[in-house]
């Protein structure tokens, strides 16, 4: 069965969330709630929850980055200092822990931030090519619901969106 896309635009979050709720409860054949994407000008965690659990993995990147930065930083500094064994240190330790902790701390943060951002790009799939049904009004003041479903389910979905006062419904063929 061939699948196609449809974008419904709404003026407010209430109507959009009602539409998603009904879509979720409709159990339409050829449609899966996982194939619904919400597009909005602002973040709205409450509606995102309606779409089901869509986990974010950025925090694991952060954890890895921070640990890598801290351990790697200390290893980098101390191994660099360890090559000074032949140089007289005046009785001071070759690898002095307190001053090395300062640099370790900075590198812990540095890599924590860098790898977090890398995680963001991977998680948000950025950079990406904009979807062909992307509508600039979504970045202005309208809420878009992008649905991917079987062609047979599309008329029912369109009907549901119209009932929920969708401002405009754009199909792949109509663009």
């Amino acid at each position: 069965m061939s699948k196609s896309h449809m974008l419904a635009l709404f003026t407010d979050f209430d109507e959009a969330s009602n539409a998603i709720r009904e879509l979720k409860a409709s159990n339409l054949e050829g449609f899966n709630i996982k194939d619904v994407t919400l597009k909005s000008p602002i973040e709205h965690p409450e509606i995102e929850e309606l779409l089901g659990k869509r986990p974010v993995y950025v925090q694991f990147f952060t954890l890895f980055g921070a640990i890598f930065g801290g351990l790697g930083g200390f290893t980098f500094i101390s191994s660099s200092q360890a090559t000074f064994l032949l140089q007289p240190k005046g009785g001071k330790p070759v690898i002095p822990i307190p001053p090395d902790m300062v640099l370790t701390y900075e590198l812990f943060i540095l890599f924590g931030v860098y790898i977090t951002v890398l995680g963001f790009f991977i998680g948000a799939k950025l950079p990406m090519k904009r979807h062909k049904l992307y509508n600039a009004r979504v970045s202005e003041d309208q809420i878009g619901i992008l649905i991917k479903a079987d062609d047979t389910a599309m008329p029912a979905i369109k009907d549901l969106m119209t009932r929920h006062k969708a401002l405009e419904i754009i199909g792949e063929g109509s663009k």
């Binding site: 974010v56 950025v58 925090q59 799939k125 950025l126 950079p127 979504v138």
Partner: peptide
């Protein structure tokens, strides 16, 4: 970068922004 304001993008954005903010505070103090 092709930002479209999708729920996935916003969810990742929210966590990232908060995490980097949490890193920046001790960093500024340090």
């Amino acid at each position: 970068l092709g930002w479209m304001g999708t729920d996935r993008q916003w969810a990742n954005f929210r966590v990232t922004y908060l995490t980097v903010a949490c890193f920046l505070i001790p960093l500024a103090v340090s």
